[in-house]
């Protein structure tokens, strides 16, 4: 096959546990379109009829064509089936770069693929561009304190792209589906014994990639009182976050933790309630466009990064804020 675009950017599509295209795909295809022609790859289980639907959704999000690998292994083996598929696709397409979501699954696939093909890897990119010499990845490191750029000395660059970091979207293209035969490497893989989808109980936006986030800290005092954070989040259509202290205290599950060791967010609006603002927390949120903080302690470090800070009791300030927002909607 020689008819792939000369400036092809191979994008690995992620799918949800039910086989739907994951939200990360639009950002990845958007990023790919900035630096070349997006060619998508989906790895899915056969017999579910996912291929056509995935190709349609990928085309709508800007894929010039969608390669689909169908294999049962994807349900029973960790990482290796996707790496085998990616190696086959990269061999056929000869892309200038390979873009993969910087999710847990994505990082594993990117790491194994880069090691297998001796390709340089750029992790957690927040942007991509192209100069005379090739593809450049942009990174924000040390909790947003530094901006870096990285590139390959030669050959394709494997890039994992931070979820929610790419705002650019690619134009829809006609659907072009192509099946690719899997060349199984036979590499020993971890066995997936069982999978359970983590159901979010609410219709709130996902924390990762959210445009608005309301987070609560130890200052909320208990799991019951943490409901106030959720109430404000719902009033703003925001995702719910938390500090590590709130997670450790059991107010909310760990997948809501924002910070160094949790999720890094860059929303338009970040509201910190009862969060002191330890460096580890700030590392995960200080790239937010607007930060609002409410805390009893006037010396709380969170105020050093807040655009608008209120020294006061969250249990009086926040209910007033919620009713003021409700008032406005009337």
């Amino acid at each position: 096959m020689t008819d792939y675009p000369a400036d092809a950017i191979l994008v690995l599509l992620e799918t949800s546990p039910t086989g739907e295209l994951a939200k990360s795909a639009t950002g990845l295809l958007g990023a790919a379109a900035l630096i070349g022609t997006p060619v998508a790859l989906a790895v899915t289980a056969p017999g579910r009829g996912d291929a056509q639907a995935l190709a349609e959704q990928a085309a709508a999000a800007g894929a010039e064509r969608t390669l689909v690998v169908e294999t049962d292994a994807v349900q029973t083996q960790l990482t290796v089936p996707q790496v085998d598929a990616l190696a086959a696709a990269a061999g056929a397409v000869a892309p200038d770069a390979v873009l993969i979501s910087n999710s847990i699954e994505g990082r594993d696939i990117a790491g194994r693929f880069a090691a297998r093909t001796s390709a340089p890897i750029a992790v957690d990119a927040i942007g991509v561009s192209r100069d005379d010499e090739g593809v450049v990845a942009r990174h924000s490191v040390y909790g947003g304190a530094y901006n870096l750029e990285s590139a390959a000395t030669f050959g394709p660059l494997v890039v994992t792209v931070r979820q929610g970091a790419i705002e650019s979207r690619a134009e829809a293209r006609p659907i072009a589906l192509e099946t690719l035969e899997l060349q199984a490497s036979g590499a020993e893989a971890t066995t997936i014994e069982s999978v359970e989808a983590i159901e979010e109980a609410s219709s709130r936006p996902e924390l990762r990639g959210a445009t608005r986030v309301v987070s609560g800290g130890r200052g909320l005092g208990s799991a019951e009182k943490f409901a106030l954070v959720e109430e404000l989040a719902d009033a703003l259509g925001a995702a719910v976050g938390a500090s590590r202290a709130a997670v450790d205290a059991g107010y909310i599950p760990a997948n809501h933790q924002v910070g160094q060791t949790g999720v890094s967010v860059s929303p338009q609006l970040y509201i910190a309630l009862g969060i002191s603002g330890a460096i580890q927390h700030k590392a995960g949120m200080q790239t937010a466009k607007n930060i609002v903080a409410v805390n009893k302690d006037p010396d709380a470090p969170i105020f050093e990064v807040a655009d608008f800070g209120v020294v006061g009791d969250v249990f009086t300030v926040v209910p007033q804020l919620i009713s003021a927002l409700a008032e406005r909607k009337r």
């Binding site: 390709a119 750029e149 990285s150 390959a152 000395t153 800070g309 020294v311 009791d313």
Partner: peptide, 24 residues
């Protein structure tokens, strides 16, 4: 002869400055 990833640019972001702080 082995392709590698190199840093091509680095810049320090100006520290975020505090905005308005009021007491309730």
């Amino acid at each position: 002869s082995v392709a590698s990833s190199i840093m091509t640019a680095i810049a320090e972001k100006p520290p975020r400055t505090a905005g308005v702080k009021i007491t309730d």
